[in-house]
Simulated assay, not measured.
Amino acid sequence: MLEVLGSVLPNAVAIAISPLPIIAVILMLMSPRAGKMGLGFLLGWIAGIAVAVTAFTLLAGVIPEPDADKGSQPIVAVIQVVLGVLLVLLGVKQWRSRPAHGEEGELPAWMTKIDTMGIGAVVGIGFALAAVNPKNLLAAAAAGTVIGRAGLGGGAITWTLVLFTLVAAATVLVPVFIALLAPSRAATVLAGVRTWLASNNAAIMTVVFFLLGAQVIGKGLGNF
Rank of each mutant, 00 (worst) to 15 (best):
L212C: 01
A60W: 05
I75N: 05
L221R: 04
L39D: 11
E106H: 12
A50M: 14
A34M: 08
W196L: 12
K219T: 13
L211Y: 10
M30S: 14
G155S: 15
P183G: 06
P134D: 08
A14M: 07
V62H: 10
A170N: 03
G120K: 08
G102K: 06
V8E: 07
L86T: 08
Q80T: 11
G153Y: 02
K113G: 12
G213Q: 05
L211C: 10
K219Q: 15
L90Q: 07
I79G: 06
A169Q: 05
V123S: 09
L129E: 09
W196Y: 13
A50H: 06
L90I: 08
L138F: 07
L9Y: 00
G155P: 00
L173M: 13
G153S: 04
T54K: 00
L190T: 06
P32E: 11
S31H: 03
I157K: 10
R185L: 15
I217C: 04
A182G: 00
A139W: 05
G118E: 11
L43M: 14
T158R: 13
A52W: 04
G102N: 00
W45Y: 14
M1N: 09
E65K: 14
D67I: 02
H101D: 15
A150C: 03
W45Q: 01
R98W: 02
P108G: 07
V146S: 13
L9W: 03
V193W: 08
G48Y: 04
I157C: 05
M30H: 13
V4R: 04
P64N: 09
N201G: 08
V62A: 15
K93F: 05
G105Y: 06
P32W: 12
A47H: 06
V92P: 02
F177V: 09
P175S: 07
N11T: 11
A187R: 15
P10C: 09
L90E: 11
A130G: 01
T57P: 03
G40D: 10
I157W: 08
V132L: 15
N201Y: 14
P21F: 13
R96K: 13
E106Q: 12
L90C: 08
G61E: 13
L9I: 09
D69P: 00
L138A: 10
E103S: 10
V85A: 14
A24L: 09
I125P: 00
L181E: 12
I125W: 13
W95V: 06
T158W: 14
G84R: 05
L152G: 03
M28N: 06
T160S: 09
G105F: 04
A139L: 04
A68C: 00
V122L: 07
I157L: 10
G102E: 00
E104I: 15
E3K: 11
F164V: 01
A186V: 03
G220V: 01
G144E: 09
T171D: 13
I23G: 02
P64H: 07
P183A: 12
L2F: 13
T188G: 12
R194E: 15
G154C: 10
G91C: 04
A16W: 05
T112C: 07
G222F: 11
P99I: 03
G124D: 08
G118N: 08
V216S: 05
G35F: 12
A77E: 10
R96S: 02
I79P: 01
F209E: 09
L59A: 15
N201V: 11
A109L: 13
G218S: 06
A170G: 08
L29A: 06
